[in-house]
Design a protein around this nucleic acid. Sequence first.
DNA 1: ATTCTCATGTAAGAAGTTACATGATTAA
DNA 2: TTAATCATGTAACTTCTTACATGAGAAT
Lengths: 197, 197
Amino acid sequence: MALEHAILVSLRERAASGSDLTRRFDASIGYFWTATHQQIYRVLGRMEVDGWITAEVVPQADRPAKKVYAVTDAGRAELRRWIAEPTTPDPVRSTLGVKMRGASYGDRAALLDDLRTQLDEHTKRLSLYEFLAARDFPDPDVLDDADLDIYLVLRGGLLMEEFWIRWLTEYLAAHTRTDRTDRTDCTDRTHAKELPR
Amino acid sequence: MALEHAILVSLRERAASGSDLTRRFDASIGYFWTATHQQIYRVLGRMEVDGWITAEVVPQADRPAKKVYAVTDAGRAELRRWIAEPTTPDPVRSTLGVKMRGASYGDRAALLDDLRTQLDEHTKRLSLYEFLAARDFPDPDVLDDADLDIYLVLRGGLLMEEFWIRWLTEYLAAHTRTDRTDRTDCTDRTHAKELPR
DNA sequence: ATTCTCATGTAAGAAGTTACATGATTAA
DNA sequence: TTAATCATGTAACTTCTTACATGAGAAT
């Protein structure tokens, strides 16, 4: 489980409350890890029990008090241990991949509409990341290591959006070429032979 | 949940047993969805109860008997319904992203070694996908819709590997340029100001 | 007074992971 | 006869998701 460790990284960058972290997971951390506030509060509780973080209640002028968490020595040691550990690949889960592959067994036109919507979202998100990169990292060559890492992970988010745009564009193009619009659809292959794939 | 639907797609392509499906999820379906045999058997049981699939016991010459599953009309209807449904984005979970961002708080040299191993894996996997594409789809323009979809999802796996190779290469290059090897490391930013990121 | 947002949670259930179990057939 | 492999599962546990809950202050 890496949510604990994503939180440790974020808290080492700067101490934060549960709702601060929730906002970060909706923004920059969200390029590579998503989590809801429910998950975050539960894990924060467990991490405090385990002694990886400590809480300090901070009253605020015009708002309810916050519990601001900071990483303990034990938490730092755990983060260090985890980063050095060999990484096993994350499981792949692409709903759109499943739908693309199964399109013959459903309403292809509806799927293509959906894919166009997704393409639009990814295009907007790419623009946002490009804007953020230009605004916050105008000169990547002069960054110290910690800021360079933040920049390079933003670059990862950006490259990921480019991947989606490429894939969706290629799929849409292949299925909207006029010379193939009336090929047979919805073929039943239940008893077909296994192909060497 | 999309595992049910990934199984429906696979069974519509060709009827299969639990272990057949396990092999498919280790191979082509694995480009975009992973599942273990334990998950698959449990979900198959549920799908049979729900009437989406039916099982037929098939004795084999030199092996224990198989239970071969096929999709029912109800299963086809469900798959059709699900494909037309608007897709919500899959949650993003990149362990390597977390580690890259947190590298300053651990052993960067160990992480870079890990990343080189990952890069190697992705490079091999890209080669495999390129081989499969060339062998099984020498002429993509003449495919019918169902085969075109299989090809385009393989293309997606291929583009995904290219994404990983780009990201990892960029990260490794940025952190192995000799003119920045002795910048400060392991900066404590616990009390730093929030940046507009 | 009531509504709204903020900050913090709880509870129930679905899904996924890890470890172990069973019967059959085949190979040594 | 013992070990190995194949096909099919169970059980226990962890994690994630979805829906709901509470109290404090702010706005109307």
